[in-house]
Simulated assay, not measured.
Amino acid sequence: MNLQKKNSFEDFPPLSGNELKEKIKASGVKLIHIAEKLGLSQQGLNQRFKAQKVKKGFILELMEVMKVDLSFFFDDQNEIKHKQSGLLKRINIYLSWLKFQEVVETNLDLGQKIGFTKNYVDQVLNGQIDITELFVDALLSLDDGVRKDWLWNGNGKMFLETPVLTHEGEYTITQIPFIPVSARAGFVENTCQYSELTTFPVYMQKSEKIDDYLVVEIDGDSMEPTLLPKTKVLIKQIPPENWGFTVGVVVVCFSDMIVVKRITENKLQTTGFLTLRSDNVAGGMMELMDTDIISMFRVIRIVDAEVR
């Protein structure tokens, strides 16, 4: 089905009230909110959902209050999945910016600030459910300097103008040692030391000690959709005595390799093993012994990324 050609009701099969109800519920929007926007009672809305064939006028009303088009109700799965994948990547970039600005900290915090449950936010960010324009509009309410056409459609630049930091007086641009993909081998050969590296400018707190920080470039797609290829992230070295308490996304140097992975299971304190996985299911998992690890870094935030 080509949505560009099929853009009228005549192009789609009939839709029952129950099917319509399930699509709305899957979007994360509460039915009571839909009823309020339509000026109906919950009983009146449920009555409409009993129809064997939904009337065109009712769908038009729903499209207006939910800010969706026909593709929301009659979608081409391949086209929708492609759009959702790109949208999710841009949302992750946007959320990294919000966390850097200290606007949000966790998914629970995010959900509370935009009016969605933590479970719904988790499902969106894990790619388990489709992202609606209503959710995107809620996200954009947290920063009016980010362009909707970029976030929703992937068009143009992310910011309306050069962003101003919330705590600008506390920050400065600092040159941090940078490990591009081409320099990884040499970095490992030098026992994961950062001598003779180029630098990359990063907004840092003026009071922050920068000796333990690096910027590393992501290679390959193993951490998609969290981190895209060529994304640059700020990392901070973790002292060996703290390795056993570490969780989240890390950069690990071992043997002749440097990898960016997510810690699945940390048993360094008990059995001496660390289990790592890729966010991309095709990337697989790996297990390391504590004696294999040369150094470990915590991934702090994205400092540069291409728009896809």
Rank of each mutant, 00 (worst) to 15 (best):
K5D: 15
K6A: 12
D11S: 12
F12V: 14
P13T: 00
P14L: 00
P14T: 00
S16D: 05
L20M: 10
K21F: 04
E22A: 15
I24P: 03
S27H: 04
G28P: 05
I34P: 00
A35T: 09
E36W: 09
K37A: 00
L38H: 08
Q42W: 09
L45D: 01
R48M: 12
A51G: 10
Q52W: 11
K53F: 05
K53P: 11
G57Q: 15
F58G: 07
L62K: 03
M63G: 08
M63K: 14
M63V: 11
K67V: 10
S71T: 14
F73D: 07
D75I: 00
S85V: 12
I91F: 05
N92Y: 04
N92E: 09
L95E: 04
S96D: 14
W97E: 02
V103N: 03
T106H: 03
L108W: 05
L110F: 00
T117A: 10
N119H: 08
Y120T: 08
Y120M: 11
D122Y: 01
Q123M: 13
V124P: 03
V124D: 06
T132C: 06
T132W: 01
L134C: 13
F135D: 03
V136I: 15
V136G: 03
D137Q: 04
L139S: 02
L139K: 04
S141E: 01
G145Y: 02
R147P: 04
L151A: 05
G156Q: 04
F159H: 08
F159N: 09
E161M: 01
V164I: 11
V164P: 05
L165F: 03
T166D: 02
I173S: 09
I173G: 03
Q175G: 07
I176N: 04
S182E: 14
R184L: 01
G186W: 00
F187M: 06
F187T: 06
F187V: 12
E189H: 12
N190L: 11
T191H: 13
S195M: 09
T199V: 15
P201K: 09
Q205K: 15
Q205I: 08
Q205W: 11
K206H: 10
K209M: 14
K209H: 13
V216D: 04
E217A: 08
D219S: 15
D219L: 14
S222W: 06
T226Q: 10
L227F: 05
K230A: 04
K232C: 04
K236V: 13
K236A: 04
P240I: 12
N242S: 13
N242M: 13
G244K: 13
T246Y: 05
V247W: 07
G248Q: 06
G248V: 11
V250M: 06
V260S: 00
E265L: 12
Q269L: 14
T270H: 06
L274P: 03
S278K: 09
D279V: 02
M285R: 13
L288K: 08
D290P: 00
T291H: 14
F297I: 07
I300N: 01
E306P: 15
V307R: 01
R308H: 14
